[in-house]
Design a protein around this nucleic acid. Structure first.
Lengths: 246, 246
DNA sequence: CTAATTTGTGTAAATATTACACATTTACTT
DNA sequence: AAGTAAATGTGTAATATTTACACAAATTAG
């Protein structure tokens, strides 16, 4: 098929009014955000899930999400969910993908924008007595409600990729951490084992770690040094950053 | 702020009906797709632009896009645009990012899903007498309508990244191409110069090129061999593919 | 004070990347 | 037909990066 002037002009003669009427009428769709919220605890990568809103999916877990308000930016909606559910602001948040298959949601046409978020599990006070909201080991995440399994898989793969390009892992750790904790985190996310010496070498070479001059407490073995992440230095280098390359 | 049972339960007691009414009423938003369609011609990377639909932006160029129909998948809408504008099916298409700032569109709240597409510029029959639709050198793309400059920039950066991870460039070339054309393409996309011998070595090592036993015609110098891309082999290796690494 | 555990550190081998030059093929010019 | 201009096709040595690997030191538990 080749283009004709007709179908081009058909497009190009649209006035603002024409489009406004289209926007206001037939072509409106419900939009939601869904957040894949990752945490790291007891050397396991976790994701925060909730019992599905809908009776139909009562027995299934689902991602945290909500409809986007008509006068709300996409990112703002995702931040709203995060704040509402975890009490945290200023967290790492990245838009990942938009899912819009016609029949993905039982309530009608709902297109959802998926976000990946990394939070420090120690910093938030989740009500652990509430069994509606739960941190799941990512290796036990199966059979989520709606298309949430697909959304989760997509976000987890994105995280695995991103973590190898940028030092995002720090968002999941406490402010002070040992190199062993950092390595455990990377191993948990990537599902691999790494050489301890080479791992340390790599991170020291990046030069983003600040030695706090403190050591771990209450460990039943030689305590490791504690470090913090040098956010400032990373932000400066970010422009020309090409990846971590594990 | 910490979570209370109240705001959790408030969420969890939603019935399908409650959500349905939300979906059907206040929370509906117009959704569009915008396609950043790349082509490669005369050793330049090009993007297909159209004069803006709206009078207000009459003098500006914009991306090709349209509202998504209520019963249409996102990808289907993007393919529809592509087919309509270029006459091509079976092209490379990738969802890149969703842009939804409240005031991004003068016609009201319109959230747009941006797609990046790679087409073979020789294979489509664009009406070059029609000045409403035009291939722009990507180095001269400035000041697009709406937030299309931002969308273009995002998609171009995505392309630069993807091209270094997967051999997508072939989508932009004719079926038969010389290694010089392939290198010109990579240089145009990445905005760099590369070493000819190392480039060839890298691609031969990937082992995705099939020597057609033919040579270039009508070149005023020693003609290069022609190759085609081995899609089958790439698809097989894809799973364990980690990148091209220029 | 001994055992168990984990930290902290360097080097050699293997692998990957880069830089680089010359003979060959073709079309064009005279 | 001979010479020139232009781009193809090819290999190697130097450099940089990645990997594999072992032992002494610090701490707690018994």
């Amino acid at each position: 098929m080749s283009l004709t002037l007709d179908n081009l002009n058909q497009k190009n003669t649209k006035t603002l009014k024409t489009i406004q009427s289209e926007v206001e009428s037939i072509n409106r769709i419900a939009l939601s955000v869904d957040c894949v919220i990752f945490g790291f605890d007891e050397n396991k990568l976790k994701v925060l899930l909730i019992r599905s809103d809908l009776r139909k999916f009562q027995s299934k877990w689902s991602l945290l999400g909500d409809l986007i308000h008509i006068n709300e930016d996409l990112d703002a909606a995702a931040y709203r969910i995060l704040k509402q559910r975890t009490g945290l602001s200023d967290v790492y948040l990245e838009q990942v993908h938009t899912f819009g298959t016609i029949n993905r949601h039982p309530a009608g046409r709902v297109v959802t924008v998926a976000y990946c978020s990394l939070i420090n599990i120690q910093h938030h006070k989740l009500n652990i007595f509430d069994n509606e909201l739960h941190w799941h080991d990512i290796n036990n995440v199966t059979d989520l409600a709606f298309d949430h399994q697909q959304i989760f898989d997509t976000c987890y793969h994105r995280l695995q990729k991103r973590i190898q390009e940028h030092p995002l892992g720090f968002n999941l750790l406490p402010k002070k951490f040992s190199l062993r904790e950092l390595q455990n985190l990377y191993e948990a996310i990537l599902g691999t084992k790494m050489d301890r010496r080479n791992f340390r070498k790599k991170f020291f070479a990046m030069d983003f770690l600040i030695d706090l001059g403190e050591i771990e407490q209450d460990v039943p073995h030689r305590p490791g040094k504690l470090y913090k992440f040098n956010y400032g230095k990373y932000e400066k280098k970010k422009k020309k950053w090409v990846g971590i390359d594990f």
